[in-house]
Simulated assay, not measured.
Amino acid sequence: MSIRSHILGYPRVGAKRELKFAKESYRKGEISKTEFLAKAQAVEVSNWLVQMNAGLSFVTV
């Protein structure tokens, strides 16, 4: 029997609040919708990789 591990939640804004700053830039018109969505996807993938590299059995999405 193996032990499985997971966490109940993970901050979605990024390690250095990248998503928050991207959202603010988008609302100010400093970046396009495409750039904002690309940043959001990059933060999401980064969050998944951190969880997978930590050895969790289930990744919080």
Rank of each mutant, 00 (worst) to 15 (best):
Q41A: 03
I3V: 15
A22P: 04
H6I: 07
N53S: 07
V13R: 11
L8E: 09
F21E: 13
I7L: 09
R17T: 05
R17K: 15
G29Y: 05
A22T: 08
Y10H: 05
S46P: 01
Q41D: 05
L8R: 03
R4D: 10
T60Y: 14
S5L: 14
K23A: 05
V50G: 00
F58K: 08
L37V: 04
K20D: 14
G29N: 04
V45S: 04
K23T: 13
E44I: 11
W48Q: 13
S46H: 13
I7N: 02
Q51P: 07
A38S: 11
S46Y: 11
E30L: 12
R27N: 10
E30W: 13
S46L: 05
A40Q: 13
F36R: 09
W48A: 08
V13N: 09
E18L: 05
Q41S: 02
R27T: 12
A22N: 02
G55A: 03
K28N: 10
Y26L: 10
L49H: 11
S32W: 13
L56M: 13
T60V: 15
V43E: 02
I7Q: 02
M52F: 09
S57F: 05
K28S: 07
W48L: 07
S32F: 08
S57T: 15
L19R: 03
E30H: 10
E35T: 12
K39Q: 14
K16E: 14
R4H: 13
R12N: 11
Q41Y: 08
S32E: 07
I3R: 08
A40V: 03
E18H: 07
S5A: 10
V50E: 15
H6C: 11
R27A: 06
R12S: 09
F21G: 00
F58V: 13
K33R: 15
G9E: 14
I7W: 03
Q41T: 11
V61Q: 06
G9F: 09
S2E: 14
W48Y: 14
E30D: 11
L19H: 04
E24Q: 15
L56Y: 13
P11G: 01
V59L: 14
K39E: 12
N53I: 02
V45W: 04
G29S: 02
K28P: 00
I7P: 02
V59D: 03
V61M: 10
F36W: 12
K16M: 05
V61N: 09
L49D: 12
V13G: 00
L56K: 10
R17F: 03
F36I: 04
M52G: 00
G14L: 07
R27M: 11
K39Y: 01
F21C: 00
S25P: 00
E44G: 01
G55I: 12
